[in-house]
Design a protein around this nucleic acid. Structure first.
Lengths: 147, 147
DNA sequence: TTAATTCCTAGTAGTTTAGTCGGATTTCAT
DNA sequence: ATGAAATCCGACTAAACTACTAGGAATTAA
């Protein structure tokens, strides 16, 4: 029941890119990796699917990097997490609509599925309502108060 | 972000034991494993920490098995899941009270922690309010209607 | 006495995680 | 034109974790 580093680093990277999106410049992986204290090589692999999913676009060559490809308020963190972590269902045998397709004949005992569904619903309520912009706002708020 | 088989099998086993708790007999791992279609040997290892945690007690020897050691309405499924799955925090760097002890100097970007906290809170709201008895009731309800 | 059960420990194949590494390609600035 | 800085791409890998299997000792009801 843990979010992997892939999801955590990826979300942080998206926030980083979004925060720097105001100024026209793009953000390099090196600078992100330095700020977050993580491996640049690894970050490369995390950022690739986020680009493929259309959240960010890249600018190659010197002084290149990444910028947002959509407005931050159009990107829900659930979308980001699903790209990096998979379906976000707490168990495999969910289809998102409360059904179970585990195929067990004795699925009487599948009363547990009501739990997994509740968990997924409440999770979605969070990750599918918070946008990247919300996190950028949080970030700016924290920084204005502290500095 | 998945519950492992350990957590799933363990919870199902607890329901199984609780359902059969009405009659004074205890429930053997073999019968649970058969009903659930899982490995008895593996179940052995799952049930051990549940016993150690005081949720169930064992009766050794022939015609032995397991019975509840507490009332089903005194056992929250969050307790069961935590024994089998760990803290249930979506990320390691939470302490349950909204604080982050990741120790990063640049924890400005830890705006993500508000998300992990929200996720944990809504998860707790579910698993720490549903008791084993609730699931037994669900089970009985389903079986009365269907059969 | 025997069969059925819990108890205990060790091993293990496969998958996932969290990276590292090397090199090709592109582009800005000088 | 050249070099430095960046993205891009694919392969590799150590360590941990998952989901078991296996074997045998101890216990107890019939």
């Amino acid at each position: 029941m843990k979010v992997s580093t892939k999801g955590r680093y990826g979300l942080s990277a998206m926030i980083d890119i979004a925060v720097h999106h105001g100024n026209t410049k793009c953000t390099s992986l090196k600078s992100i990796a330095n700020r977050q204290g993580i491996s640049e090589n690894y970050l490369e692999q995390i950022v690739a699917p986020l680009k493929k999913a259309g959240f960010i676009k890249s600018i190659r060559g010197s002084y290149g990097g990444y910028t947002l490809n959509k407005n931050a308020n159009e990107i829900y963190i659930g979308e980001i997490l699903r790209v990096l972590e998979g379906t976000m269902y707490p168990v495999e045998c969910l289809d998102g609509s409360g059904n179970c397709y585990c195929g067990d004949s004795n699925c009487d005992l599948c009363v547990t599925k009501s739990i997994w569904n509740k968990i997924y619903k409440s999770l979605s309520d969070i990750i599918d309502t918070i946008t990247l912009q919300d996190l950028v706002d949080d970030y700016n708020k924290i920084n204005n108060i502290n500095n």
